[in-house]
Structures are given as C-alpha cells and as structure tokens.
Amino acid sequence: MIYHDLLLTWCSEVEAGTLIDFREVHDWLFADMAMAQRPKPNTTIGLMSTLGYLEVDWSRGGWAVAPPVLTLLPESGAICLLTGARSRALIDAVAEVEGNDELSDIAPPTRHSQAHGPTAILFPIDSGAALEQLARRLGVRYELCASQRLAAIIPSVDSMLGQCRRSAAPVGFEVKRFDHTRYRWLEADSDSNYGLYKYEAWGPPQYRWRADGHIPLDIDLATGAFAEMRRLNQHVLTFRQLGNSGELLVPLGIPLPTLHARTAALCSGLVPQLVQRRNEPWQLKYVNVPRDIAGRIALSLGQVLATPMLQGGQVNA
C-alpha cells in the first residue's frame, strides 16, 4: 500500500530514528484509514523488520534501516527480492534497470502491492551471475539466499533465554497473564504464579516470564511465548506442504522471534497473511517456505511441526 511505501521511503531517507518518531509519522500517515483497518505502529515496524527492511532496538527505542540487499527466494523459480533501505535514488535505479533493454538476463520486476507492508519488488533472474549483475546496477549488496543462511544460524530458545536478565516487574501498570489455550491476554490480579505476564508500561509493553520461584525474566514476547509453550509441552506451529515448498502457520498471539520470522518471511518477501480457520485463534501464514527451513525454525524453538494430511494438493482441514 502506498502508505507503507511512503513510510519505507521516509525511513530510508532519514536512515535511523527513535520509535517515538516512527510512531508519530506512522500515526499521521494512516490517520485517514478506517479505524478497524488502521495498523498499530509497533505491528508495522515489526513487519518491516521481519521483511528485512529495517532493524529495531526495542530496548533502547530506536530503529535503523538495513542495507539494501537483493536476495534469492528459495523454491521460487529464480525470483529475487529487493529488501532493506529503499531511498528514492534506489527507486529511480530500479526504474532505470526496468527500462534498459540491454540487460537481457534481467526481466522487469514485479511490484506486488501489499495491504500491510511495502510493495514487494521481485525480479525474475536467469542465473546467479544475473543476480550479481543486477545488484551492481542497483548499487546494492546481494545475499544468495538469506532465508537459507538465516535458517542455519537462528538461535534456540535456550540461547535466547540466556540473554534475558532477571528483573522485577514494573510497578503501577496494568498486568495481564498469557492464556496458553487461546493465545491471548487476560487481566490478572496477581503475577506470582508461573506464566508469562504483560505490563502496559510507558512505550512498548513489558513482559516477564516466571518459571521458577525467583525474580522473573525480563523477556520479549516471542521468546517468552515460545519458552512458555515449551514449558507446557505445547506445540503450535503447523506446516502445509504445497508443491516444493509450503505454508508455515504461526498463532498470531505467539509471534516468531525476529530472526525466525525473517527466515520465514524471506522465503517469499511477502507480509505473512492473517488467517483463521473455523473458531480457532488467528494465525499468521508465511508462504513459500521450504520444508527444511520450516523444520529448522520449529526445532530451534523447541516445537514439533504439525503437518496436516493433504488431499489432492489441498489442506485436509
């Protein structure tokens, strides 16, 4: 959508800023959308980070655009994605490549407009050499297949927990407890039981995970949620094989950690879709994810992938 593109252009021009700046710009840009459709700034910047356009330092309230990069999407039929900073100069460079008949190895890009993220710019290419050549023409870096490389280095839940410090819960704010049955937050009168808690403090919400009798861990939502799922031995990730790749389904209330989400999203370059089946909780659907990548994501999070049976190529729901 045009607002996301403008937002990405603005981010790319200013290059870095605070979450407060981002929020102000975001709220202004989307102000004329119907309230039900209007995205929340943390959701938008989270999705932009998932897709590799920028990085967010949640602890210090800052963000910075990522270097512009071309990367091949796995099992895509040789499609590469342009992600990272997208200044107007880069947009002009893309237009120039598009109009240049001499670049026989590079087909014109497909611009895929998305409701909840910047337009995905996708280039069909003929060879790895063409990827290099295109990157040179655009003046950007290239990463052969970022999703595959990320899948090889995404950290485990344990290693992420190792980065969390114990910290008393903030005082004075509303507290809610994570409901592991419906993946939602319920008001709580106490935060002394084992579980994941959310505090509506200044800035982004704060989370604490209490899994022992000590001071709780100051944790991010994704790590906390998957740590809690593992504590409860609950498996929440689903993979549907469709051809050479498939769809990875993640409960909306249990978002993947940043690098895990990016691994899945850079299989398509697309914003994960929000889906709901019957009365089940909402899910995020990452498309075009190869089975091995989905498996690595699940393994690192202590999850076992559910793989529903397919009938005639369709999901047996």
Binding site: S159, Q163, I219
Partner: peptide
C-alpha cells in the same frame, strides 16, 4: 550449541 545471540533484540 549453535549460534548464541548477544542481546535479546537488535543492537
């Protein structure tokens, strides 16, 4: 044990 992050968020 695989790759260890050095912070819980981007830094």
């Amino acid at each position: 044990n695989g790759y260890q992050p050095t912070s819980p968020t981007a830094m």
